[in-house]
């Protein structure tokens, strides 16, 4: 049972991810952009962050830079719609460079995300 900050601009994706997390008994706070996520991080304690990369205002990479820049070591699971071999899109190496603990590629199934989350929470 963990308290998760879910950062995702697509309402449909956000819904599906929060439902997965809820099914495992986790509680979720949603943010539609990196900027919103920063605000919400200030107001509450979270066990982990699940974040998309491409978002308006402040994207996932910017968000990671901000979090790690302020010395926060909170586990971050990046969920990416990009293909690993597509050069112009956000890729795992990029996210990993800026401090993501793990990258899960969309579309993922319930078990995939929950397993990744379990791993980062155990660390």
């Amino acid at each position: 049972m963990a308290h998760i900050l879910l950062v995702e601009d697509s309402p449909e994706v956000s819904l599906s991810v929060s439902e997965i997390l809820a099914s495992a008994g986790h509680t979720t706070v949603e943010a539609a952009s990196g900027k919103e996520a920063i605000k919400k991080l200030r107001g509450a304690q979270f066990d982990a962050i699940v974040s998309d990369i491409w978002m308006p205002e402040m994207d996932g990479i910017e968000l990671l830079k901000e979090i790690r820049g302020s010395g926060n070591n909170i586990p971050v699971v990046v969920i990416s719609g990009g293909a690993p071999n597509a050069p112009l899109t956000y890729t795992a190496p990029l996210a990993a460079t800026f401090g993501a603990n793990v990258v899960v590629y969309k579309p993922f199934e319930k078990a995939e995300l929950l397993k990744a989350l379990e791993t980062v929470l155990a660390d």
């Binding site: 449909e12 994706v13 819904l15 990009g82 293909a83 597509a86 579309p107 319930k110």
Partner: peptide, 15 residues
Amino acid sequence: VAHEINNLLQPVLAL
């Protein structure tokens, strides 16, 4: 395109 489709498939698969 992959990004778009992947994002759209995400709720389909999960929900």
